[in-house]
């Protein structure tokens, strides 16, 4: 499948022109990774914006007493790593492959060039990042709702 065509189906990319999509797709490196490959480490900075294309990526974090908490699983079409790239602070969780996966990665240098509001492409890319973060916030709220459901199963 053409990466460009795939990107065009994702939230936030619908404002991009054909040429914009070409630029983003050509800046991404698509690779296959084995089960267990760690893309992002908790408390370490991200060095790329990742897009899960095939397979599953699990998200978890180490809390108090180094206990591991499984947070969620990412599905194809979901980005990860953007939060750390936008604010320059460490990643909040571990992101690792659950089985074999195919992931497209936009290196930090390309991200920095794209995430500039001084061009049409940069403006359009802002909506991609806003969509990615909105999906994360929605997932976070869903997790909290599930937590309530476990605490109060009667509703």
């Amino acid at each position: 499948m053409l990466l460009k065509r795939y990107l065009g189906t994702l939230p936030g990319f619908d404002y991009m022109s054909d040429e914009d999509l070409d630029h983003v797709a050509s800046a991404m490196q698509v690779e296959e990774y084995p089960d267990g490959h760690v893309f992002l480490y908790q408390d370490k900075p991200a060095h790329a914006l990742h897009l899960l294309i095939e397979g599953e990526v699990k998200v978890g974090y180490y809390g108090r007493l180094s206990r591991y908490y499984a947070v969620r699983s990412l599905k194809p079409g979901e980005f990860f790593g953007g939060l750390s790239l936008v604010d320059g602070r460490p990643v909040m969780a571990n992101y690792s492959a659950e089985g074999a996966v195919k992931v497209g990665s936009l290196p930090l240098s390309a991200f920095l060039l794209l995430y500039q509001p001084n061009s049409a492409l940069g403006c359009h890319f802002q909506h991609v990042i806003a969509s990615h973060l909105a999906m994360d916030l929605k997932a976070r709220h869903l997790a909290l709702r599930e937590l309530l459901g476990k605490m109060y199963p009667e509703g």
């Binding site: 809390g63 509001p117 909105a134 916030l137 909290l144």
Partner: peptide, 22 residues
Amino acid sequence: CRLAHRLIVMQVQRLRATVNDP
């Protein structure tokens, strides 16, 4: 674009503030 950037900054703040353990 200016508005979207503002929304991104806000969402970053909320993601950092909304931890997984209330």
